[in-house]
Amino acid sequence: MNAAPGIPRSRRASERNRLDPFVVSGGDASPRDQRDLMERPFFSLAKTKRTVPIFYEAGDVRVEVFGMPDHGMATIWDADVLIWAASQIVEAENLGLTTSRFLRFTPYQLLSSIGRQTGARDYGLLKAALTRLQSTVVATTIRNGQNWRRQQFSWITEWEICASQTGRAAGVEIVIPEWFYRGVIDRSLVLAIDPAYFRLTGGIERWLYRIARKHAGRQRAGWTFEIAHLHAKSGSLVRVSDFAIQIRHIAARQSLPGYRLGIERDGARELLRILPADLSTIPVDNHVNGIGISHATLIGTSHAGLSGLRTHESQLSLWPETAIPALNLSNLESNSYVDGAGRLADNGPGPSVSGPKARGDGP
């Protein structure tokens, strides 16, 4: 079959040919995260390139993540792109606008919304992040209905950066996978998160906030995890003992916005208790005023030295044929928890993650 005239060869088999674009005309939207991504190990927590796969299993839930040797696995900082996309889709849906898996936006909209700089280096880091998101392969049985079904996809199906005549990145087109899009338009599978999340600099620290928001939420009794089980849920390559040290440092800093952390002992088990910081004034889906860490790492920064004790430091219309719409303003897997009476309950041993010992997730 001949391609339609005027369509470049690279676009002939593109999903963008059959999807209506969702043109993001604003940028500011309350940040939302997807529940499935918050509680399972879908991303590398390291700032160095990771190619060791993630294998995670709990009950009938399986997650497998593979990074390509050339680029490595998508990181938890790269996941900011998905959080931003989810936030824009939810905001537009709330306003009754039509959304799509095919998003058009400017790099400035994305970077400024997640607290990043907008210089040439930052656009280069965004390009590297998009490359890792596309090259990472995910296979999971989550949301498989009554029958077991394994779904496989990449975080971004395809992407393109449009450059101006000066070479400056001026527009971005991305297509997100159906699995992720369905998890965003289903409101029961989305949670509001604190904007201070984007200022958290450590991989484990960022992952721990998402775990706290997903499990502890605004429950007065909070939630308690065995640290060894948290290690399995994280997919981290650091040793359990090193992971525990980093969790203790995060608890000592009290750096998670909206939550207070405490280390406890139950015999030989070391536990982390997560409690909401203030239940009396803040509704569940409103922003909280937490302690944020400044000097956030930029998207996709890799090969940076790490330490468990310190941190690292107007819509442009590019597509004249498309009108820009109105501005978009508007567990089972936990092995322990604290019940309503304050008693510690146990759900049995947690899952395991395979892979060699390594360093580099950061707190």
Rank of each mutant, 00 (worst) to 15 (best):
M1L: 01
N2V: 14
N2K: 15
G6S: 02
I7N: 08
I7Y: 11
P8N: 04
R16L: 12
R16N: 09
R18Q: 05
P21V: 14
V23T: 14
S25K: 14
S25M: 09
G27L: 13
A29H: 06
S30R: 11
S30A: 09
D33L: 12
D33R: 09
D36S: 03
R40H: 13
P41D: 05
L45H: 01
P53D: 08
I54L: 04
A58D: 08
R62D: 10
V63K: 15
G67N: 10
G67R: 07
P69G: 10
G72R: 03
M73R: 07
T75H: 07
W77H: 15
A86T: 06
T99K: 01
F102R: 08
R104T: 10
T106N: 15
A120D: 10
D122E: 13
L125T: 00
L126C: 14
L126D: 15
K127Q: 03
A129Q: 09
R132M: 09
L133S: 12
S135F: 08
S135P: 01
S135I: 03
T136N: 08
V138P: 10
R143W: 06
N144D: 07
G145S: 10
Q146C: 08
Q152W: 15
E158R: 12
A163Y: 08
T166A: 07
I174N: 04
V175D: 12
I185S: 11
R199A: 04
G202L: 00
R206M: 02
W207H: 01
Y209D: 07
I211S: 10
A212I: 00
K214T: 12
R218F: 05
W223T: 13
T224W: 07
F225G: 04
E226S: 05
E226F: 01
I227Q: 12
A232K: 12
A232D: 12
S236W: 00
V240T: 05
I245A: 05
I245R: 12
I245G: 00
R248Y: 02
A252N: 14
A252C: 02
R260G: 02
L261Q: 06
G262L: 05
G262V: 07
I263F: 00
R265M: 07
R273E: 06
L279Y: 00
T281A: 14
I282C: 06
V284A: 13
D285M: 13
D285Y: 06
N286T: 05
N286L: 03
H287R: 04
G290F: 14
I291E: 04
H295Y: 11
I299R: 13
G300I: 09
S302W: 03
H303E: 08
G305F: 13
T311L: 06
H312P: 09
S314Q: 11
L316A: 09
E321F: 07
T322R: 10
A326N: 02
L327G: 02
S330G: 07
S330D: 09
E333K: 05
S334I: 08
N335F: 01
D339W: 02
G340N: 06
G342T: 03
A345K: 10
A345I: 10
P349E: 15
P351G: 13
S352T: 09
V353F: 02
G355A: 08
A358C: 10
R359A: 10
G360R: 02
G360N: 00
